[in-house]
């Protein structure tokens, strides 16, 4: 169920079959997007646990709104629109709950360690860390450190290989805004990356 191999049904027809009562349609759709969407959400939210939560929220919304889906359109951009909205909501709620940013430096020195650095990591232990793990940690820090609106356009544009128009549709913002945001996001990522590495 993980891939489309052997199942030629399109996403759109699966959603229609789900509405018509086919029991396996929705789980198939879930399985099809499990890794891809979860990966996108993990990068967007910076946490696999948060991604689990938002993934469920997203498909709950897909189920609840399935009847309103325009069958002449593609399912994937619609799914990512819902996912991006749910991820933004999650961010907003999380920020409200947080009194201090985990990325804020401890003490007055802006170069000092952050609260995030002090948290237990779910990565490998230092004695088994390889260069790859260091690189992964660095990429995570730089990407997670980008503002939300920059991170989301990079993820959609670069990771999901969406066109400017598709990103604009997903985020419901003007095409020009998408362009300028992506330009800014790439510039910011490059700047932070060079600084960090």
């Amino acid at each position: 169920m993980e891939s489309r191999a052997g199942d030629v049904r399109s996403d759109e027809s699966l959603l229609r079959m789900h509405l018509e009562g086919a029991a396996d349609a929705f789980p198939t759709l879930l399985g099809r997007y499990k890794n891809e969407l979860h990966g996108f959400l993990t990068k967007f939210l910076g946490s696999s646990t948060a991604a689990d939560d938002v993934f469920q929220e997203t498909f709950l919304q897909v189920h609840l709104s399935a009847a309103t889906f325009d069958q002449t359109r593609k399912f994937k951009p619609w799914l990512y629109t819902i996912a991006a909205n749910k991820a933004r909501d999650f961010h907003r709620k999380r920020k409200r709950r947080m009194m201090a940013s985990l990325e804020a430096p401890i003490g007055k020195n802006p170069e000092s360690a952050t609260l995030l650095d002090m948290l237990a990591s779910d990565q490998e232990q230092p004695d088994t860390q390889s260069e790859t793990a260091d690189q992964q940690a660095l990429v995570k820090r730089v990407l997670d450190g980008l503002p939300d609106h920059h991170r989301e356009v990079i993820l959609l544009g670069y990771f999901q290989r969406m066109s400017y128009q598709q990103v604009a549709d997903v985020l419901a913002i003007p095409l020009g805004t998408v362009k300028s945001r992506l330009h800014a996001a790439v510039a910011l990522f490059s700047k932070h990356w060079r600084k960090a590495s």
């Binding site: 929705f26 789980p27 879930l30 399985g31 499990k34 890794n35 979860h38 990966g39 993990t42 990068k43 696999s48 991604a51 689990d52 993934f55 469920q56 498909f59 709950l60 779910d122 990565q123 790859t132 690189q135 992964q136 940690a137 990429v139 995570k140 990407l143 990079i154 670069y158 990771f159 990522f189 990356w193």
Partner: peptide, 19 residues
């Protein structure tokens, strides 16, 4: 470089939990 962002594949239980 972004490709090396660490992502752990979700468990199969995610589908059950969603349903």
């Amino acid at each position: 470089h972004i490709n090396s962002y660490p992502v752990t594949p979700p468990s199969d239980a995610l589908i059950d939990a969603t349903l």
